[in-house]
Design a protein around this nucleic acid. Structure first.
Length: 135
DNA sequence: CTTTTGACGCGTA
DNA sequence: CTACGCGCCAAAA
């Protein structure tokens, strides 16, 4: 039942939906795998990790997705984590001595209301900002 | 069709 | 704080 007038990403593949959401993260802000998954609505945080590992040459700001502990996740096959951290630091993200970032400062509040509505997604809570009042 | 391949999160000890 | 265990599953080959 695919409606040709449906311009949302409802019928898109899970990975494409994940990439679309990730593409909304602004420079210098961060989202967790779980946060993206919650917005996507039907996948698990782990799926988001799988999708990030498969971005390839797509123009997606994959570096802005980190784990819920606020650290850059390790790869199965060596390096890459260091490159991710450098990319983030070049966007202004600050890591503490333990290599962690503060979601209260750099956390992304999620796509704006209209984007979610137009693309057929649903709002989701933000790590470290649960109950944060919307302004 | 089957097999392989991975950048998570949370609870518990 | 660390170290497990365990559920999670779409894509590409």
């Amino acid at each position: 039942m695919s409606d040709p007038d449906d311009t949302t990403l409802r019928e898109a593949s899970v990975y494409e939906r994940i990439y679309a959401i990730t593409g909304q993260i602004p420079r210098g802000r961060l989202a967790s795998y779980g946060q993206i998954a919650a917005i996507e609505g039907r996948c698990t945080p782990r799926m988001v990790g799988y999708a990030m590992a498969a971005v390839g040459q797509r123009e997606v700001p994959w570096q802005r997705v980190i784990n819920s502990r606020g650290t850059v996740s390790d790869r199965r096959h060596g390096g890459g984590t260091n490159r991710q951290r450098r990319l983030l630091e070049s966007e202004g993200v600050v890591f503490d001595r333990a290599g962690r970032v503060d979601f209260h400062i750099f956390g992304w509040a999620g796509p704006d209301w209209e984007w979610l509505e137009v693309n057929g997604f649903y709002p989701a809570p933000v790590p470290g900002q649960a109950g944060r009042k919307l302004t």
